[in-house]
Design a protein around this nucleic acid. Structure first.
Lengths: 108, 108
DNA sequence: TTGACACATTCCGATATGGGAATATAATGC
DNA sequence: GCATTATATTCCCATATCGGAATGTGTCAA
């Protein structure tokens, strides 16, 4: 079986670099698809497909404005990811402390 | 072109659910492969392959101990992910504040 | 209504994915 | 050395991925 499909969850959706850039671009302001196409320098269908994935997992919201589709990042969708990674914080702090101590003992 | 390969970065490596579980299991203590096999209830080659991916992106460390390979999560490898998602925190706070305000105005 | 935008979807092809089965490698104990 | 244990790798397969080209759909303007 291949990997759980991209549409299935946030972790998969953000695994693709272009999609991370899109989320960054849409975090602070709404933008139409055409603007993303210009900013990213990739083909329009490609952008639309990435937006589709992001929409399916709830990472962006859409709104029609005339002929344009205005997209915007739904930042709260990224919270699970932040929380999950954050659970490891105590461990990397440990590690950093150990590394620091080792460095100090070498200097002595 | 298919997605950037799984081995290429942390975001891809953690896109697979089993691998996230493995990272959780190896966060607090070193474990041999066989133990992961028992705990996860999946075939040994499968576990070895996931560990290989995690090792390639630096998310776990290994050490040989007799016949066993002792694996452990290298938590600091998850920091980039935490930082990246954390950059969106100010946006989801905004959103939550707006939602709260709307709820309050309805109650009035 | 017709044309022109702005997007979305579909179809295609090359490649990657993860699981299972079989096999290879490495360390231990006899 | 030889069997055994622990793990890694390889091969195969069904399926998913992304990009590109072509096509569909929806909105506006004349």
């Amino acid at each position: 079986m291949p990997r759980a499909t991209t549409r299935s969850d946030v972790f998969n959706a953000v695994a693709e670099p272009q999609r991370r850039v899109i989320l960054e671009l849409l975090a602070s302001e709404e933008r139409p698809v055409g603007e993303l196409v210009r900013l990213l320098g990739v083909a329009q269908p490609s952008v639309s497909k990435h937006l589709r994935v992001l929409r399916d997992v709830g990472l962006v919201d859409v709104r029609r404005h005339g002929r344009n589709m205005m997209y915007r990042t739904n930042a709260s969708g990224l919270q699970p990811l932040h929380v999950w990674a954050g659970a490891f914080e105590r461990y990397w702090r440990h590690q950093l402390r150990r590394i620091k101590q080792r460095a100090e003992s070498i200097n002595r």
